[in-house]
């Protein structure tokens, strides 16, 4: 359903050099499966998911969603996904009903097709009491519900959730996870990013641990436990990340090289755990060999 091959995204660092936000990641998520992308802040999760939802163009590699190429057929990809992230907000001056209806119409549905589906969703997500509340007066939980209804309105086969539980209280988060589980049971292919270990343990069928734009390891939670000889997933996560950070820092220190993985361009420097460095020579970075063969650049032109 969703497949990436050596997916890469570079940014120009405002201070020169390149930032490798996503540095050649491969994974595959199948229908009826929740695939977790786990990583610290700034690991590249948001960038990767933005590429999958065609908001960003990859610098290299490929991403296939529901059989369509993210670069060449972005419109078809968008038609087949429901995307929800911390950054996909709700319109302040639209009611819940209008908001969901608006996006339903944009997906090409007619009002006659749309309204039964919306009634179903509003029932299912217990949203009937906020039907006529404008977004500006909703609580975070209500907004999250509207976002989910908006992402589900056209009944897409692929759902992409980027840290959907952030900012929610325990009760709402729990309901949300339950909804996601149900969606999986309906056979949807779900990609779910988070930095909270408990969610992974409870929810994900398979998980990839992402750090500095690269996948450190991938498998079912049980596979990871046996692979690393450790029952506690959080411990595994912590160990892997620390190791990767120290290696990267060693490289940086030795080469005066670049900070490689910087995730969300909107997440300011404060939210990045790894210190930013002045990039000097990208080609001298540790992963230059891994990058070179398949860099076909799609920047520019716009």
């Amino acid at each position: 359903m969703v497949k990436t091959k050596k997916l890469t995204k570079y940014y120009d660092d405002p201070r020169g050099g390149l930032v490798r936000a996503v540095d050649g990641i491969d994974f595959e998520a199948r229908p009826g499966e929740i695939f977790g992308l786990l990583g610290p802040n700034g690991a590249g999760k948001t960038t990767a998911l933005r590429i999958l939802s065609t908001l960003l163009r990859p610098s290299g590699g490929r991403a296939i969603v529901a059989g369509f190429d993210c670069l060449r057929q972005p419109a078809q990809v968008r038609r087949n996904i429901g995307f929800m992230s911390v950054n996909t907000a709700v319109y302040d001056r639209m009611t819940a009903w209008e908001m969901v209806e608006y996006f339903g119409l944009l997906y090409g549905w007619t009002p006659e097709q749309l309204h039964p589906r919306m009634e179903y969703l509003f029932d299912r997500l217990k949203m009937n009491e906020i039907r006529d509340v404008p977004g500006g007066r909703m609580s975070t939980g209500m907004k999250q519900k509207v976002s989910i209804a908006r992402a589900l309105v056209h009944d897409p086969p692929v759902l992409i959730f980027d840290e959907p539980t952030s900012g929610l209280d325990v009760l709402v988060a729990r309901n949300l996870l339950q909804t996601i589980r149900e969606l999986r049971d309906q056979g949807k292919c779900i990609i779910f990013s988070t930095h909270i270990m408990r969610e992974v343990e409870k929810l994900c069928d398979r998980v990839a641990i992402l750090c500095r734009g690269r996948i450190l390891t991938e498998g079912t939670p049980d596979e990871l436990r046996t692979r690393f000889g450790e029952q506690d997933l959080e411990e595994i996560f912590f160990r892997l990340i620390t190791e990767a950070e120290s290696i990267a820092k060693g490289h940086d220190a030795r080469l005066g090289g670049t900070a490689m993985g910087q995730d969300d361009p909107k997440a300011g420097p404060a939210s990045s755990p790894q210190p930013r460095r002045e990039g000097k020579d990208v080609e001298g970075g540790p992963s230059s060999q891994a990058v070179a063969p398949w860099v076909t650049d799609q920047r520019g032109g716009s």
Binding site: T54, F83, T88, A89, D92
Partner: peptide
């Protein structure tokens, strides 16, 4: 600023 642009751009509207 309000974050709704990303919502709109992830819809099929070109």
């Amino acid at each position: 600023e309000r974050g709704t642009l990303e919502t709109l751009l992830s819809s099929p509207a070109e």
